[in-house]
Nucleic acid binder design. Sequence first.
DNA 1: ATGGTGGATGGTCCA
Length: 260
Amino acid sequence: MIVASWNVNSISVRLPQVLDWITANEPDILCLQETKVVDERFPKAEFEELGYQLAVYGEKTYNGVAIASKLPLANVQKGFKVEVGPGSRRLIAADAGPLRILNVYIPNGSAVGSDKYYYKLAWLSALKNHIDESYRRDDLLIMCGDFNIACEDRDIYNPEEVAGTIMCSDVERKALNAVKDWGLIDVFREHHQDSGLYTWWDYRMGAFRRNVGFRIDHIWASRPLAPLCKAILIDREPRKLERPSDHAPVFAEFDVTIAS
DNA sequence: ATGGTGGATGGTCCA
């Protein structure tokens, strides 16, 4: 079973690229972030024509998450039970066959010490509580999405230059590690140890051409599920297209049987 | 050097 995650930076703009990518790669589940449309305007029919069910939780202009799945989705949950602050739409969860999917768009945080940074930390705390309340350690859980945090220096092109700044400050890394300590595994690092492997490159300054990137989009798996991951890749090809998202999709294959 | 690029918007805000 193939599970993918992609921050598309507007599903309206990126729809043709996303549909092409789905056709080429045939993921069973695709988690999207930064869809930037209200639910009524999400292009559901185009996904349904390719055989996918949709669960969407979006808003105008900002944020927005969605799950497209070939398997029927059940127990769809949108947002935290009690939202953090103004309550932007950044979390959607559902069960798909044997898997429990948690798709998150963790706040960017803008700059260390800013109001948005403290919102990011509060959101991470709420995420930890949400997982504690919602899942069991023996669930086949995937938490994926745009985490907006590079966990280690090898996830960053120029760690010395950006040390302590947004997406790699110690405090936000610790807050994310507190989530991870529930029992989640960064599946990508089970399969790849190299630096230079990124999922996001700024649109500016020719960052992609120079591979000035960050690995901030992740697929994490619970302890019983992680060993079933047979392969995981970042697909850089869509980032090379005209009018790309600034993020590349990440996708993982899990050797799980689908009960009928 | 606080720049630069892209998306949604219709003023700027966000990333």
